[in-house]
Nucleic acid binder design. Sequence first.
DNA 1: CTGGATCCTCGTGGATACTG
DNA 2: CAGTATCCACGAGGATCCAG
Lengths: 136, 136
Amino acid sequence: MVAKAAEGASSGSGEKDIKRVFYNDEECPIRNVVAQIGDKWSMLLLFALVDGPDRFNSLKSRVVGISQRMLTQTLRDLEREGYVNRTVFPEVPVRVEYELTDMGRGLVKPLYQLVSWAEVHQEEIESSRLKYDQRS
Amino acid sequence: MVAKAAEGASSGSGEKDIKRVFYNDEECPIRNVVAQIGDKWSMLLLFALVDGPDRFNSLKSRVVGISQRMLTQTLRDLEREGYVNRTVFPEVPVRVEYELTDMGRGLVKPLYQLVSWAEVHQEEIESSRLKYDQRS
DNA sequence: CTGGATCCTCGTGGATACTG
DNA sequence: CAGTATCCACGAGGATCCAG
């Protein structure tokens, strides 16, 4: 179940017009999903780590445009949620590797479905945008 | 293919260490996905419209917390991308209905997979957060 | 090399008032 | 009813410097 159900607000009270209501609290799984992977960098880092464990500066190079600050912060968040493991190798200089957890790999699967869908429909979306902008 | 591929930056030059690079441009489908449905309201509105066509104020009631401004703006965006149709009925007072397009319904499917996954793993995530916060 | 701390900018988005 | 217009607060996030 995605959200609590409620009858349509109108007077009809028909059984067919059931429309869900999406509440403001943290129990709404959709809001949780958006909060977790809707930010600018989380999805990119998850996909980057699909290719195998990687280090801080390598990730910084591969995810073009991310700043040190946001890389640190996003990796910490992903680690906190349980999607990423952080391992420190006490060498000199110190080496730190990040890798997907099993749960992280599980999350990537539906994400990949989403991205694949988007790739397939990219042209269709582009043409829809053009049509919308033309009739301004 | 999700992103252009490149060899690992290190000296290894082994064939197995191929890691993708995620560029900054608009051609990166992951960044496109985040830009389209990563904002605070798009996913909620798409799921709300799964239950059938709905009107402006009804959507405003069902998506708890959204402001007029963001409802208008997000619906416009979704219409521009081609996920939502907007129909004006010239009655008095005027009635406007929003409904998913075929493409919108197509997008909801992978989104639903994602939300379902999140629902299943919600407890696991919560416990991971607790563990992380304890060892501060 | 891997960050932590600080400052500052800029866009998101909420509140409110007004219109067709 | 379904928006548009305006103002403004807040936080995401970039730049920079510093530390282990």
